[in-house]
Design a protein around this nucleic acid. Structure first.
Length: 832
DNA sequence: AGCACGCCGACT
DNA sequence: GTCGGCGTGCTC
């Protein structure tokens, strides 16, 4: 025994993020073997409760926590797959958007990188049913007998085998009796796509050996042929190292080489087969290596943008529709990539079409990765890994691409930055991509450009205040001009009886003229289905969804009433369910009815609808766009989908059927939204030099000021009015909004909980900050009642973190009340 | 979020 | 008396 105390090596701990909705990091001991190479950002397998899970190492330290710790089970990667900046970003998100770090990790990590734990059971190797000396009950015996037949079973199969729902008791008892053991099998869900390759066995891969080989194969023509072909493709005389890379079996067999000859060569140890991981993303190589040509206006804008960058300012690029922002982006992306930094181009979901991807891949080829929600999880894992190992330097993607493992981003572009789809509604983290881009930019010291023809007024305000550098592009690309916008008074046409269904005579005439000239048109109506309301003429009953507080939409083709919130479907009734009357009429116009009416007016033309119903599957959206581009379709009728960044040469006319629906929204942003939507969809008209486009806006009330700002394209005019109102009534950007959502199956409980919570908030934050329990426009969805509380916080001179903490405490306080135990409450920071 | 533990009613 | 219901609280 030593007299001196043994010097203890300090234990290393790792704080691990787990992809579960838990608020904290969890501290684990790092096994000594792992200590030398474990780094922040590694994926690890950790025991968690009774299960195991994948986690991300967020911190490594030697501070023993107060509780007892378990060991990290295993390490999954040889290098970090999460960057330090990402870890900071995730913390910021959890903090700012008031959710758990686990929820952020769930949103961040593709499912394929989380590992599934499947517990398996087998008999204890020393267990002998004859001699064990312990009594088993019937269920236990059943399982043991099963295991004697089958060496191991899956945990999930147990209920079936022993005939009870929760088998854990049986398992626990058997483990205690040392009859069985549990083991866990970890499998990586991600399976890279592989391709079979062949190469010469090392022994043969040099000149003299090859000469011998041909001697050996003298009479075996087929085999000789294979070797010849191989050597043609892989010139190992000049570059011996090429044999290492080999040649894909596919490309050999493609040259009319017999597969059986290859097989024989492999069998005789002349060739060897091996697998190569190949990328799932289509290989597109650069076809336009040259620089893009910029117009003088674009060059000027670019110089201004660079000026902003010099001052470390993010840039708001306000460029009218069709001003050629994409060329500008391409030129900036090229420069950034040349300087060796990573680049991210974030686009709203629907703007990320093959149209833009094809165009970009012509410039950037293989170094570009596409991150899109319609891609499979495997494809997402591939982009993730590509960013980690540097094969992908440039990502074009949707909102979630901001969460990729970048570690040296130099340029971030958020295009169509006004788009509401940059905001995630559900589930948490309810983040806003455009703001997150700003934070991401800070973390990487990267340059940021936000581009839009119609920036949100909050974004424009920040530019005015100098937080962004404002750069304007006021000319359309080429010789194209902005379209002429015309208002049509449909209440007057109604009185004059010149309307044809939803179409005014002015719009019909314009369509006629456009079609005569062989030009295309887009009709915009932000409402899908046939008619949004089915009403009884006798008693006035509106057919409502049984699960949601909305009227059912009639869908003509399936002859169904559908709920657009929960998916409820019912056959269109023949009589009113309340009074039995047969006088049921539909009201309002959805895209289906617009299509039907238009076809009646122009029976010969080809019309296509583009809405959620016609673009359900992966390719239908693309097919419609292709058909429209190739002029197989003359008129495209659609919802919001047609407003986003599409570029069709042949379109000269855009009709907006019902502007009032957009303007009448009870929301402080409704004018801004209506302006954006009308300008964006109008911008699809006349994008080529030859023809000046035309936009026709139908409304019942032409006195609405917003309409005229659209006609005059007076963005700043509307902005000034609106911003003054926002200031007066304390709305963003002058205040910060946090929406608290309260949900429960019973309306009374929901209401009471919201009222209670509001009272607590008013007490803790002040009556002027919590604005009361409100019933939202749709107050019930899927049989859950909803109440909302808007919390308004000052922008300055307020401890935001403290306010949020108080809000979270108020929520906990409410949830604690016995009557509100099952009420679900969450926060939506900066709601849209 | 999942999952175990625990305290109560229904049935062998 | 056991089985299984669901409510409560923890997971390093």
């Amino acid at each position: 025994m030593s007299l001196f105390p043994i010097e203890e090596t300090p234990i290393t701990y790792a704080d691990v993020m787990v992809p579960l909705a838990v608020p904290n990091l969890f501290t684990y001991k790092v096994p000594e073997d792992f200590v030398p190479f474990l780094e922040i950002g590694f994926r690890v397998i950790v025991p968690f409760g009774s299960k195991i899970t994948t986690g991300i190492v967020a911190k490594i330290h030697d501070q023993a926590p107060a509780y007892k710790t378990k060991y990290i089970d295993n390490i999954l990667d040889g290098r970090p797959v999460v960057s330090p900046q990402q870890i900071k970003l995730m913390h910021w998100m959890a903090d700012y958007y008031m959710c758990t770090i686990g929820e952020v990790l769930i949103a961040t990590l593709p499912a394929g990188m989380k590992i599934s734990s499947d517990s398996k059971i087998q008999l204890h190797p020393d267990y002998d049913p004859e001699w064990s000396g312990v009594e088993l009950n019937e269920k236990e015996r059943l399982l043991v007998e099963h295991l004697l037949e089958q060496p191991h079973v899956d945990f999930k199969e147990l209920p079936e085998i022993i005939g009870i729902k929760s088998p854990s008791k049986v398992i626990k008892s058997l483990v205690e009796k040392q009859a069985i053991i549990l083991f866990e099998q970890v499998k990586d869900k991600y399976s890279p796509k592989k391709e079979k390759y062949v190469r010469l066995k090392e022994h043969w891969a040099e000149e003299t050996a090859l000469q011998q080989l041909f001697g050996l194969l003298e009479k075996k023509e087929k085999q000789q042929e294979v070797i010849m072909r191989y050597l043609q493709a892989v010139n190992i005389f000049d570059q011996p190292e090429l044999n290492e890379i080999g040649l894909s079996k596919k490309s050999l067999t493609a040259q009319e080489v017999s597969p059986s000859a290859i097989k024989t060569l492999v069998k005789n140890q002349i060739l060897e087969e091996f697998n190569v991981e190949i990328s799932r993303i289509g290989h597109t190589s650069k076809t336009i290596p040259d620089q893009v040509e910029l117009t003088p206006a674009q060059q000027k804008a670019k110089a201004e943008i660079n000026q902003g960058f010099e001052n470390n300012q993010p840039v708001l690029l306000h460029g009218i529709t069709g001003s050629g922002k994409t060329e500008l982006y391409i030129s900036m992306i090229q420069e950034a990539l040349d300087s060796g930094v990573q680049v991210l181009l974030a686009l709203p979901e629907i703007a990320l079409t093959t149209q833009i991807v094809d165009r970009l891949s012509k410039y950037f080829g293989d170094q570009m990765g596409v991150y899109h929600s319609k891609y499979s999880d495997n494809e997402r894992v591939e982009v993730w890994k590509g960013v980690v190992n540097g094969t992908i330097q440039f990502v074009v993607g949707v909102r979630s691409s901001l969460l990729l493992p970048f570690d040296h981003l130099g340029l971030i572009i958020v295009d169509e930055c006004h788009e509401t789809s940059f905001k995630q509604y559900d589930p948490a983290p309810r983040y806003y991509g455009a703001d997150l881009a700003l934070v991401l930019g800070h973390l990487h010291q990267a340059r940021l450009v936000m581009g839009s023809a119609t920036p949100s007024f909050e974004q424009f305000y920040l530019a005015e205040k100098g937080k962004y550098k404002l750069v304007q592009l006021t000319e359309r690309f080429g010789q194209a001009q902005l379209p002429e916008i015309q208002l049509v008074d449909i209440s007057r046409e109604r009185k004059a009886k010149t309307m044809q269904g939803p179409y005014s005579s002015v719009l019909v005439k314009a369509l006629e003229e456009a079609l005569k000239k062989g030009e295309q048109a887009i009709i915009f109506q932000n409402r899908r289905g046939y008619a949004p309301v089915l009403i009884c003429e006798d008693c006035g009953t509106v057919h409502q969804c049984p699960n949601c507080a909305v009227s059912l939409t009639k869908h003509q083709f399936q002859n169904e009433l559908k709920c657009h919130y929960c998916g409820y479907k019912a056959a269109v009734p023949h009589e009113c369910f309340a009074c039995g009357s047969k006088d049921l009429v539909d009201q309002g116009f959805g895209t289906q009815k617009l299509e039907e009416s238009l076809q009646q007016i122009f029976p010969e033309i080809s019309i296509q609808r583009m809405d959620l119903d016609t673009t359900r599957n992966k390719y239908s959206y693309q097919t419609i766009i292709d058909d429209f581009e190739k002029q197989k379709i003359q008129v495209l009728i659609g919802t919001q989908m047609v407003t986003k960044g599409l570029d069709f040469e042949g379109v000269s006319l855009v009709g907006i059927v019902d502007a009032d629906r957009m303007l009448g929204f009870p929301d402080f942003r409704s004018n801004e939204r209506a302006y954006q939507m009308m300008t964006q969809v109008g911008g699809r008209a006349g994008r080529r030099a030859e023809r000046k486009g035309k936009v026709i806006i139908q409304s019942r009330d032409l006195a609405q000021a917003t309409l005229h700002t659209v006609v005059e394209q007076n963005y700043t005019g509307l902005y000034k009015n609106e911003i003054a109102e926002r200031e007066e009534f304390h709305y963003p950007p002058f205040r910060r909004l946090i929406k608290i959502v309260v949900k429960h199956r019973e309306e009374r409980v929901c209401q009471q909980a919201a009222v209670y919570l509001n009272a607590v908030l008013q007490e803790w934050l002040g009556t002027h900050r919590a604005l009361g329990a409100q019933s939202p426009a749709v107050s019930k969805i899927r049989n859950e009642y909803i109440r909302e509380i808007i919390v308004k916080l000052e922008r300055e001179n307020i401890d935001l973190k403290k306010a949020k903490r108080l809000m979270q405490q108020a929520i906990i306080e409410t949830e604690k009340q016995a009557a509100f135990k099952k009420v679900r409450i969450y926060c939506d920071v900066d709601p849209y």
